[in-house]
């Protein structure tokens, strides 16, 4: 799968990502990571050409639950490697999966009871929740409010893969047409990504 996808273009993008990460330009790196995921998704078997970044943005693609479940494992691993080595394991998909798996084991969370006052513990753990004075509320930060810094909680980044949603979906989730920011977390997409990551890990093991 990757052999065909890993064109020179993709290799260049990956080395560009590494460069951005080592320069600690976390925001640009996050954007590039999401771009690469979206381009991999748009690069369906019938469509041989890998779409350019502009094309991806023009079509306003986003990573839906079903899309996340079919992301190519080699690409996820490659991106994760870049993030992990640049952040010393602090950022990256593996860091997020680790946080998520710990929560799954320790906290019984019933999505049926999800409401304002009971966000999924993962959001709080990785520091994606908007801070309110008294108690955590299930509202996520605007994307620009995130901490693009190594002081951020573990698994804080990459985040844009989750933030980028269609405007309508954002609105449905109680947001302000600004993507995932400032609205309730979508557990299905988060879980799909985490499930995908754990399945990819089994392949490696």
């Amino acid at each position: 799968m990757l052999a065909s996808a890993m064109t020179t273009d993709l290799e260049e993008s990956l080395s560009e990502l590494s460069l951005l990460l080592y320069e600690e330009d976390w925001k640009a790196a996050d954007r590039l990571t999401t771009d690469l995921l979206l381009r991999a998704v748009a690069h369906s078997p019938g469509n041989s050409a890998i779409p350019s970044r502009e094309e991806v943005q023009r079509h306003r693609l986003h990573l839906a639950t079903e899309t996340l479940a079919t992301l190519p494992c080699p690409l996820l691993n490659a991106l994760d490697d870049c993030w992990q080595s640049a952040s010393g394991g602090h950022f990256g998909f593996s860091a997020q999966l680790q946080v998520y798996a710990d929560i799954l084991e320790t906290v019984a969370f019933d999505p049926a009871l999800r409401n304002w006052s009971m966000p999924h513990p993962f959001f709080e753990e990785v520091g994606w929740l908007m801070l309110f004075p008294l108690r955590p509320v299930g509202f996520l930060k605007f994307y620009s409010w995130l901490d693009f810094d190594l002081d951020a909680p573990m698994g804080h980044l990459p985040a844009l893969w989750y933030w980028r949603v269609p405007r309508l979906a954002s609105l449905q989730m109680g947001g302000f047409l600004t993507g995932q920011g400032a609205c309730f977390g979508d557990l299905s997409r988060l879980d799909a990504m985490m499930l995908r990551l754990s399945r990819c890990h089994q392949l490696g093991g």
């Binding site: 639950t65 079903e66 996340l68 479940a69 079919t70 799954l104 969370f109 999505p111 557990l187 299905s188 997409r189 879980d191 799909a192 985490m194 499930l195 995908r196």
Partner: peptide, 8 residues
């Protein structure tokens, strides 16, 4: 066969 599990 499921893309996600924890929500449902």
């Amino acid at each position: 066969s499921c893309p996600s599990l924890s929500d449902r």
